[in-house]
Design a protein around this nucleic acid. Structure first.
Lengths: 337, 337
DNA sequence: CAATTTTATGTAAACGCTTACATTTAATAT
DNA sequence: ATATTAAATGTAAGCGTTTACATAAAATTG
């Protein structure tokens, strides 16, 4: 690979001038500029990024730490981030971790070493306390996704899980259901917890005493099993609210396998509105989560932090709550086909 | 951020020794090692990646150039790559481009500047000729995905589109269909072209003269429109083979909207086996593409190239063809519910 | 125990760039 | 034409590492 020295030699100027030309900084006569550009082209020169970063400390890169690069759910967010980031000449680098404290720390160290300009951290299963122990470099702007409210100087973007789950539960109650079951997502998951809280509150506000619950972990399979168990149970729910669509889909399959009709015999609703939800029979009633937009918003927020005064963003805790919409389809029984 | 100099001072040794400790290269007494490690911990030191790269030329990073970071299709491949790459301590950096020559070149230059250790390039709409004009740094190992066969020194991984499409068409013919339509994917797309070629060949081998065709661009919407048009046409097909599942799903919706029963009135099949395909009614007959595994394979191949002798991989053209399986469900009419 | 070999550590150059500062050249004013 | 100011270019240090080479310390040998 050609270096800036090669270019300088070929163009008959100093490296400083070449640098000025390629970065469009400082004054340089058009004639010299031309010579330099010609040399750049001839040598197919591209500045060494590491050398630039070493010098300027500006990586034009934002790091992303995700619980697991495996889920479509996260990918939609990542897509949103990429789409926005590219417009601003930034790049992303993904350091995935499995939502365990130690792995997260490793990812942090890794990304700090790369001196990223900013960080997006999604760690839905981390508690407030754990979040505090992360080796955060406090000069690096960070935006958290789906975390509990944290005190000082952190910015986070979260879904309005509570209110949406509340609404969905109300919706089921209005349809006449009294025995509504909830299938939990992964233990400790913040989104799942808030959805559960909204469900509980609605039950309470409507004078329904006992909740019916089953464990799950966001997978279709866990939804299938949870539903099986729920149907057999003596609590005999007439509706099931799964903490996400994958589990709801599993639940629908399970109900079908047990010869129950959805929604006539049992209503089933989900959360997320993944692409399959509209195609399954019956079409799934759920809550639309604008993941792609969420990614863009996260990114916009981060870029703003990066550009703003460091002192400014240090003590500006910000919590952005994204409102969600109910999507009423068939699986809740509201629409008669 | 603490530097290696700070660590050296605190530990009372030279930077060289610190470097030896953190990289586990060269001999160092256990006592000194301990001191250094303690200092590293105390200062929460993490080596500056740019400085390391500048020195060693080893980025432990592989660059990925994708036509568009937007499709789930690509994401599955990316996931596969990430999963494999992480095991080997590598990271990835994504430079997306929209499959246009100029943008691709930019992405190449960008990644070359980052001096990546290897490159994965997916450019399904590029022709052989265009591929040749890319500013490839010939010391950087590259693996291409879904490209036409290229001559010298390139390695590529492709799907067995031709044979699978051939089989699928045979399958429809065996079910008694004579007027089988094909919905094309995006123009110039290599996968689509090969699928089309397989379809044509099968038609020919079975003595069916005229093909029936409609244009599409891989989106559900385009499949919907193509199907509409096909149904109205005087060629009156009894089966539709869409170049991917998204279009097939659009086609099924379209048929339903026109009061045609699938598969009784018209059989519809796809290609890819995306997750929705098994849930749609009727469940879609399609061809399973193991994207995730493909990603892993691509990555494995690339890592092997990176580690092998440069001279060796320069003239070793390799073309890996991934076999695909038919997934017979309901939409083709083979299974009576 | 001195001589030799082996092991551990230090010194300093180099990687490819940016940029403060110095110097030269051109433009403008007197 | 000369003095003054502004624009263009060059010089060289420094960013944080790694590593070849030099040196010092420890271990081994006869």
């Amino acid at each position: 690979m050609a270096t800036i020295v090669d270019v300088a030699k070929l163009a008959g100027v100093s490296t400083a001038t070449v640098s000025r030309v390629i970065n469009e900084t400082g004054n340089v006569r058009t004639a010299t500029k031309k010579k330099v550009l010609a040399a750049v082209k001839e040598l197919n020169f591209s500045p060494n990024h590491s050398a630039q970063v070493l010098q300027t400390k500006q990586t034009k890169t934002i790091g992303m730490i995700f619980p697991d690069a495996s889920s479509i759910y996260f990918y939609e967010i990542i897509r949103g981030i990429i789409s926005h980031v590219n417009k601003h000449g930034f790049q992303i680098i993904i350091g995935s971790a499995h939502d365990e404290e130690e792995e997260l720390k490793t990812a942090f160290r890794f990304l700090n070493g790369r001196s990223v300009d900013g960080l997006v951290v999604m760690a839905p299963s981390l508690t407030n306390g754990e979040l505090f122990t992360l080796p955060i470099n406090h000069n690096t702007p960070i935006v958290f996704i789906s975390v509990p409210p944290i005190k000082a100087g952190t910015t986070s973007v979260v879904l309005d899980n509570f209110n949406s789950a509340y609404e969905m539960t109300e919706h089921l109650i209005r349809l006449g259901h009294k025995r509504i079951a909830f299938i939990h997502g992964s233990p400790n998951n913040y989104d799942s917890k808030r959805r559960y809280a909204g469900y509980l509150k609605s039950l309470k506000d409507n004078g329904i005493s006992g909740s019916i619950e089953a464990e799950g972990n966001f997978t279709e399979d866990s939804g299938y099993k949870a539903c099986q168990q729920l149907i057999k149970s003596k609590e005999n729910p007439t509706a099931i609210f799964a903490a996400n669509d994958a589990m709801a889909i599993g639940a629908i399959e399970s109900a079908k396998d047990q010869k129950l009709k959805v929604p006539e015999d049992i209503a089933i609703v989900g959360f997320d509105d993944i692409s399959t939800s509209q195609y399954i029979t019956p079409a799934l009633t759920t809550i639309r989560v604008p993941l792609y937009k969420m990614g863009q918003l996260v990114c916009k927020t981060l870029l703003h932090k990066i550009r703003s005064n460091p002192a400014e963003h240090l003590n500006a805790a910000e919590r952005i709550v994204i409102p969600l919409d109910l999507v009423i389809r068939e699986s809740c029984g509201a629409k008669i086909k």
